[in-house]
């Protein structure tokens, strides 16, 4: 068979995986596995191979296999990356060293505890806040926003909450209080959204003692972001906005209005009726 021919030439690669058993506690240790390599194999594929052939107790978190869900963030060969979007050959190494994302507690093996990420994310109130709650809950029309205004925040809305930025951030390495690049970016995403009216609500955590001013532009968050969200830029823009505001150079913008009815809107009455059915179903 062709597969056995290929396996004769097949290269193998050593996986060193950090293991931690929450039942026993103690210090995590690295365990080696030899994994046969095939073309296009991702780090996640390698972990699946280990689980199927070597050790079914190996634990990690993953779901979509295509860089959308943000579940399989791991510390792979010295950088936080998604296991699913990184092919083993692209790591240019015969060893793949996989550890759980740093700056999060380890639940088991490669599974980090994301409570910290989600708690901080909640703290910036990452949702559209409007003064008119009735209109927001039972909308009559959409809020007006131009294509140019969309550009101000669309990049930051691409965040998949994979948590890589927080594990790369030097401030987060020592500070549990730091709001962190992910949440700060999401806070700015809403401040930059013209439809939002919750400037005070988002600003509270954003401009707190442990907010944007604890970022010193080490740039690691933007370097590791798998979606091009660029948290470092969002944080600097948030600082810029606060600075300009303090100089009186910019005012709090009013929330975007509800789109007015479009003139010459084709009413339901003017829409031509569908022709009568040509086939009549017998009951």
């Amino acid at each position: 068979m062709s597969t056995s021919k290929e396996s004769g030439k097949m290269k193998s690669i050593v996986f060193e995986v950090l293991r931690y058993d929450p039942e026993k506690g103690g210090v995590p240790h690295l365990q080696e596995f030899t994994v046969p390599l095939h073309k296009g194999m991702t780090v996640l594929d390698g972990l699946h191979w280990i689980k199927e052939h070597e050790d079914p107790t190996l634990a990690w978190r993953s779901s979509c296999r295509m860089g959308i869900c943000g579940s399989c963030g791991m510390f792979i060969n010295g950088l936080p990356r998604l296991a699913c979007t990184n092919q083993i050959t692209q790591l240019h190494s015969d060893r793949v060293v996989i550890k759980p994302l740093p700056n999060y507690d380890i639940i088991r093996d490669l599974v980090p505890d994301f409570d910290r990420l989600f708690d901080r994310h909640r703290s910036v109130k990452p949702y559209l806040i409007r003064r008119d709650r009735i209109e927001q809950n039972s909308p009559t029309r959409e809020y007006f926003q131009s294509a140019e205004e969309l550009q101000n925040y669309i990049q930051f809305a691409y965040c998949i909450k994979c948590g890589l930025c927080l594990s790369a951030c030097p401030t987060a390495a020592t500070s549990d209080d730091y709001v962190g690049p992910q949440a700060l970016t999401q806070g700015w995403r809403y401040l930059a959204d013209t439809r939002d009216e919750g400037i005070e609500e988002h600003s509270e955590a954003l401009y707190s003692k442990h907010g944007v001013y604890r970022c010193h532009f080490a740039g690691a968050c933007s370097q590791v972001c798998p979606k091009g969200v660029d948290p470092a830029m969002a944080i600097q823009l948030a600082k810029q906005a606060a600075f300009l505001k303090s100089l009186g150079k910019c005012q709090d913008r009013p929330g975007a209005p509800v789109t007015p009815p479009i003139e010459n809107w084709v009413s339901e009455k003017q829409v031509p009726k569908a022709p009568a059915p040509t086939v009549v179903r017998e009951s």
Partner: peptide, 24 residues
């Protein structure tokens, strides 16, 4: 009893640039 392992990099996160960029 389930134990969580604290995995913060600590001061090494400040000083150790590792494979991150020059900015770090």
């Amino acid at each position: 009893m389930q134990h969580r392992y604290r995995n913060n990099l600590g001061l090494w996160g400040w000083l150790g640039g590792g494979r991150y960029g020059f900015d770090r």
